[in-house]
Simulated scan of single mutants.
Amino acid sequence: MAWWQWLLDIAGALLLLLVAYGLALVVRRRLIARDGGTFELSHRLAPSDDGRGWVLGLGRYSGETLEWFRIFSLAPRPKRRWPRESLAYDGRREAFGTEQMSLYPDHVVIHCQTASGEVELAMSAASLTGFQSWLEARPPGVDWDR
C-alpha cells in the first residue's frame, strides 16, 4: 500500500473518532438533561486575579444537591456536587477582562461560601434567579440564620 493510502486511512479513522466523540457528547447531554433542571453553569476551578481558571459546564438540580458537569467530558457522573445546606450566596458581579472570553455571553459571576471555602460560579441572570429560589426553598427545620 502506498504512503498516501496510509495517510488517507489515518485521516478517515481520525474523522470517524471525532464524529463519534461529538455524538457521544450529544447523547451524554441528553441523558443529563432528561430529568430537567439543567442550565449552563461555569465553575472556576483555580481562583486567580487575572480571570483564568474557568471551565464551561452544565448545572443540574438533583434533590438537595447542585451538580456540575464539565461540558466536554464524557463522564456520566458530575465533577462537583454542592449540597444545598452547605451553600451560602454571597453576591454577584459582572465578568471582566479575560473572563468575558472564557464564559458564556451575558453570564454573571456569583460567589458562594461552602464548608470547604469559597466557590465561584457563572450563570445567566435567569438561572441566578432560579438558583436563589432553590437556595431559599430549603426544607423546614433548617437554620436560616447560618
Rank of each mutant, 00 (worst) to 15 (best):
M1S: 15
A2H: 01
W3M: 13
W3H: 12
W3C: 04
W3K: 12
W4S: 12
W4G: 00
Q5W: 04
L7M: 08
L8Q: 10
I10D: 10
A11E: 06
A11N: 03
L15Y: 03
L15K: 07
L16E: 09
L17A: 15
V19A: 15
A20I: 10
Y21V: 07
Y21S: 06
G22R: 11
L23V: 14
L23H: 10
A24E: 06
L25V: 09
L25D: 07
L25S: 08
L25E: 08
R30M: 14
L31R: 15
L31T: 10
L31D: 11
I32C: 09
I32S: 05
A33N: 00
A33P: 03
A33C: 04
A33V: 03
R34M: 09
R34V: 13
R34F: 05
D35Q: 10
G37L: 02
G37I: 06
G37V: 07
T38Q: 05
L41S: 01
S42Q: 06
H43D: 04
H43V: 13
L45R: 15
A46Y: 04
S48Q: 09
D49V: 12
D49Y: 07
D49S: 14
D50H: 09
D50G: 02
G51L: 01
R52T: 13
W54M: 05
V55L: 15
V55H: 14
L56A: 12
G57Q: 08
G57M: 08
G57A: 09
L58C: 01
L58F: 08
G59I: 08
G59T: 07
R60M: 01
Y61H: 13
E64D: 15
T65H: 09
W68E: 08
F69M: 02
R70G: 15
I71R: 13
F72L: 12
L74D: 07
A75S: 15
A75L: 14
R77W: 05
P78D: 03
P78G: 05
K79R: 15
K79L: 12
W82A: 04
W82V: 06
W82C: 04
S86Q: 09
S86G: 01
L87C: 11
L87R: 07
L87S: 09
A88G: 00
D90R: 11
D90C: 08
A95W: 01
F96S: 13
Q100E: 15
M101N: 13
S102H: 12
P105V: 04
P105T: 02
P105A: 06
D106P: 01
H107F: 11
H107S: 10
I110F: 00
I110S: 12
H111S: 15
C112Q: 02
C112Y: 04
C112H: 02
A115C: 07
A115K: 11
S116D: 15
V119R: 05
E120L: 13
A122G: 02
A122Y: 02
A122Q: 03
M123N: 02
S124Q: 00
A126F: 01
S127H: 08
L128N: 02
L128G: 03
T129A: 11
T129R: 13
G130Q: 11
G130H: 11
F131Q: 05
Q132Y: 06
W134F: 14
L135Q: 05
L135M: 06
L135N: 05
E136V: 02
E136N: 14
E136L: 14
R138E: 10
P139C: 00
G141V: 03
D143K: 00
W144G: 06
W144F: 07
R146I: 05
R146N: 08
R146D: 11
